[in-house]
Amino acid sequence: MTSPNPFGTLLYLMTVVWAMGLKIMPLSTVIQPWNPDWVLLVMIYWFLALPYRCGVFSAWMIGILTDVLTGRMLGQYALIYAVISYICLKLYKRIRLFPLLQQGAFIFFCLLFAQILAFCIESIHNPSRFEFAFLFPAFSGTLVWPFVGVILRIIRVRNRVG
């Protein structure tokens, strides 16, 4: 057995930074509402793959950075990511054994929950009507999940992060 990479945490952070870049990528106005929450997707992968490396607190820190990056109220994404990380870390043993479809369903509910939470927190700040378009990122996120999972798995195995 090869020894795991000591820079594993660094790799985790690098993929998250990469996801933050994708999150604020400028797209045309048609596609923009469908841009999934890449940061959350990447973090869910790491929660499920390496639950002992990344905890609730690291998710919270990344959430605060995402708040600053996207200009939200401080604490919005921090709260969401912390809650999602808790769910993932509680259930990761089961999720790993799930077949692909069930795993997809779990991811979908995580993303949906995150979107709804985000909407609730934002409507404290400026009350607005709920529109179905707020949930688009959850659908698109579920669709891109297999690719994200495969790519991150390749990165993880190549760099022997364990």
Binding site: V56, W60, M73, L74, G75, Q76, A78, A82, Y86, I121
Partner: peptide, 15 residues
């Protein structure tokens, strides 16, 4: 940990 994180975030949101 979750409790601490949630309380911190809510505090920050309020502030």
């Amino acid at each position: 940990r979750l409790l601490v994180a949630v309380l911190l975030s809510v505090l920050m949101l309020v502030i």
